[in-house]
């Protein structure tokens, strides 16, 4: 743990998060969020959580940005300025109170890497000491995820798959939607032709409309 590095990482994370909220160009916001995730992965690796850091770098800084950009291409690139809510003072007080509560609660947390911390004295000692003998797996995180606590992993995988399927159901373009759009486009073309027909070209237009 290097204090200066940690402070720099937190400052960069706060800056990128605040800027991502402020910028009007959503593509810039996506790039800032990807940078935020990359710095967050450095933070995780700094506390020796390599597995979490790897997932954060791959998913947060990589794929999430791609999915955001795909969503921007589907919708719009500019964010619309929201009108300021009336109870802004109340919101600020609530946020400040919550922040104060979190800071107050964090003073009771054990120090990072404290061997007397509750998380280090419970069942995790068994996992750490027995992983190699039980499962021949030196990486305790893997044996925890896929063996000791594999039911959690089963649930997580199910959640990911369900989320993807739900997103697909919401976003999928159904054939009947396309049919409706086609009909609308055809109606628009016919309207144009109807106005053109006033010019006396009705005969040729009618011929073209035969499929």
């Amino acid at each position: 743990m290097i204090v200066a590095l940690d402070i720099a990482i937190f400052v960069i994370m706060l800056l990128t998060a605040a800027l991502a909220l402020r910028v009007k160009d959503l593509l810039t916001a996506v790039a800032l969020l990807a940078g935020y995730s990359l710095v967050a992965s450095v933070l995780f690796i700094g506390v020796a959580a390599l597995d979490v850091g790897l997932v954060e770098a791959a998913l947060g800084a990589g794929i999430t940005g791609v999915l955001f950009i795909a969503a921007i291409l589907l919708t719009t690139r500019r964010s619309v300025a929201r009108e300021r809510p009336k109870q802004q003072a109340l919101t600020m007080v609530l946020i400040a109170g919550f922040f104060g509560l979190m800071v107050f609660a964090s003073t009771d947390l054990p120090d990072r890497g404290d061997p007397e911390a509750p998380a280090q004295t419970g069942v995790s000692t068994v996992y750490v000491s027995q992983s190699l003998a039980d499962t021949e797996t030196p990486n305790v995180v893997t044996s925890l995820l896929a063996d000791y606590r594999s039911q959690d992993t089963l649930g997580e995988t199910l959640v990911i798959l369900t989320a993807a399927l739900a997103a697909a159901l919401v976003l999928m373009r159904r054939p009947e939607d396309d049919a409706v759009e086609d009909e609308r486009a055809k109606a628009a073309v016919e309207d144009e032709r109807a106005t053109d027909a006033v010019g006396g070209e009705r005969a040729t237009d009618a011929g073209e409309e035969q499929p």
């Binding site: 390599l50 597995d51 850091g53 790897l54 997932v55 791959a58 998913l59 990589g62 794929i63 021949e136 797996t137 030196p138 990486n139 995180v141 893997t142 044996s143 995820l145 896929a146 992993t153 995988t157």
Partner: peptide, 12 residues
């Protein structure tokens, strides 16, 4: 088994 990673990161 031997390094960081596994199914989630590898799948991504």
């Amino acid at each position: 088994h031997y390094g960081p990673g596994g199914g989630f990161a590898g799948g991504v």
